[in-house]
Structure formats: C-alpha cells, structure tokens
Design a protein around this nucleic acid. Structure first.
Lengths: 179, 179
DNA sequence: TTAATACGTGTAATTAATTACATGTTTTAA
DNA sequence: TTAAAACATGTAATTAATTACACGTATTAA
C-alpha cells in the first residue's frame, strides 16, 4: 500500500502512557482504539523492532514464571519528541472505503427493486453499529469524571456515534423517498 | 494490503455503462468516482489484464491516427453476472482512517493548548471539503432531471455533504466547549 | 492432573497500493 | 511549425496489511 505509517504514532502514543509488551499493544486494537484503527500482531512486532532501531523506543526484558521472556517496551526522549511533532503536523483523512456507497453509485433507477433490499440491509447494519457505539460510550464514560480524564477519547467516540446516527438518518430518508 | 479487490467491481460497473480504454477508466477516478474511491493507472492496467483472463471483460483494438493502438474494453456476459452478484452481496465498510481522530484520541486534557490549534485547523479543512462537495452537487445535479437519471450517484454525493456537515458541526461544538 | 485458554513472540507468503520509471503518439494552440 | 498538453499503455520497486504458519510458557478451571 505504501501508506503513511500512522501505526508508528499510535504505538508511540500508547507507550507514552505506559510501558507495554507487543502483546499488550496488540490487545489495544481489540478494544478502545480498535474502534477506529486496526492492526494485528504480525504488523506490530516487526514495527516495534524498526522503531527500536530508530531509537524511538527501547525495551527491558523481564521474566514471567521461570522461563517466559517478556519484552517491555518504553518510549524514549526521541520517541516523545517525534510523537509531539506528529500531533502538531497537518492531518489527513484517507478516502472512506464504504462498499455500500460504491454499489449505490451504480444504481441509476430510483425504482430499482434491488435498491430497496440494499437500503433495508444497510439500515440494520448501521443500527447495530449505533447500538454498539452507544454501549461503548456508556461503559467507558459513565460520568463526567471519565470524560475529563480522557477528553479526546470521549470526543472521538461521540463523533463515531453522531456519524452513525447521520448515516442511519440518511438511509431512512432514502427509504421514505423510494417506498 | 491483501484487500477485497473492490476495484474490480468498480471497473465492471464503469464498463457496464460503456466500453472504455484503461486511460478512460483511470480518468474516472479524477472526477465523479474519485470523490469516494482512488485508483491510478498502474493499478488499473494490470487488473484489466487479469479481468480479461477471467473472461469478465474483453477488448477490441482500434487505431487512432496512424499508429496508436487503443484497447477498448467491454464487459462480457460473465462480467455482468459477476457485477450483479456483487450488488446483491453484503456490504462492508473499512475502518475509517482519519488522522485527526487518531490524534484526538491521545489528547487527555480538555484545556490542552494544542487541542485548540488542532480544532481550528480541522475546521478549515472540513469547511473547504464541504464547499467543494456542494459545488460538485450543483454541477452534476442542477435539476431533478439529472437526479432521476443518476439517482444513486446523487444519493452518494448528498451523503458526503451531510457527513461533512456533521463533521463541521461536531468540530464547532468542541470549539465552543473548550474556548 | 490435565486440558483449555490466555499469554507471549516471532516469520513467511500473499496481495494491494503507491511512486517512479519508461516509452511513444496525437492533437491543439501559440 | 513546433512545442506543450493530452492521450495511451505498460513495468519495476517499494511498502503496507492480511492471513497463515510456527513455537513455546503460564495460568485457570474442570
């Protein structure tokens, strides 16, 4: 893909908060940050090595049990600096790859039978997503205390909820128009 | 990336409408469809060859001028069938890669000075996008006649506009909260 | 006690996407 | 008439991302 290697900055951001193993970092993408970025361990481990070579991070090895070696990565001064620089740099958004939008583009006829089916199926898809996101918000931000502590995260989740709400509204609008 | 090869279906969709050269198809991504999908010629030409090997498309060569050979691709029965099947299949949406959202996630403090700068810069970014999209809509759909002819495309553009509007609203909300 | 699950780290193979390299023709406007 | 821009088609190199392969340890619950 020849992309922009934003994963690097995510790892720096996560390590800035606390030292972690590759395994820990991988798990981050199964919850919280996984809502808006994906990465798996076979992407993370090699990247950690490269980042260490760049002196952005470092690690200390510790023993769990009697044999298992754990590599605990932590951020360096250089790493912190690189991260801060990234925060201040201009942000880009990649083209949104939405397969439904793509299909819709090719539907010329408002009375197409297929269109109705496509809309209803998308409606349930996004309804589910909305429910999921609202639950996430309730779980992570039950009170204003949590919001104050992780303000950015709360904004990001709120944005996702509003986006899904907008998507659903738009779908409902179309449905009303064509039925 | 090991992706889902949706480009294949886009090319089929474009060729379903009319026979085109690789060059023509490439140009499609500079306007219309380029608003929500990207592809360049070095991705398209090899894919066309593979699609021809799969008998999804075929081509006839014509001469322009005295020497220039033009390959005009057209869709086959198999191709049409494959495209229709895709339209009926479930749609997925890839994780939205928004660098600003990513950065925001790492901002814990509502009073962060950086946050204010980040918001204002994003505001202008999305304001510009919104203006651009609205202009696109006016150009492509000056009256209901065009909407009836390319209903899906109009919905897609309208969706993009509403999404940008929502993004801007959300940013303005945040700005009000933190200032 | 033993089997399943979670923890932990890595490599290999494949495919997708971008940028750069490479070449030539046709048309149009100065 | 000539130079620039548009037309037209390809390959090569690089990097990113996914899936699969691969190995071993520690903990927990039946």
């Amino acid at each position: 893909m020849a992309q922009k290697n934003r994963l690097k900055y995510i790892l720096l951001g996560l390590l800035k908060d606390k030292s972690q193993t590759g395994y820990d970092l991988t798990k981050s993408f199964e919850s919280d940050i996984g809502e808006f970025w994906t990465a798996n361990h076979s992407q993370i481990y090699p990247l950690l090595k490269r980042m260490e070579a760049e002196r952005l991070i470092d690690h200390k090895t510790s023993l769990v049990g009697e044999k298992l070696q754990k590599k605990e990565y932590f951020i360096t001064e250089t790493g912190s600096h690189t991260f801060e620089k990234w925060l201040k740099s201009p942000s880009e958004i990649d083209t949104i790859h939405d397969e439904f939008i793509l299909k819709l583009y090719f539907i010329d006829d408002p009375q197409s039978v297929l269109l109705k089916q496509m809309i209803t199926s998308q409606q349930s898809y996004h309804r589910d997503k909305l429910v999921h996101l609202k639950m996430q918000f309730k779980e992570k931000f039950p009170s204003s205390k949590q919001i104050k502590q992780h303000f950015g995260h709360s904004l990001v989740l709120r944005h996702a909820i509003e986006r899904e709400q907008g998507y659903s509204d738009w779908l409902n609008e179309i449905y009303k128009t064509i039925k």
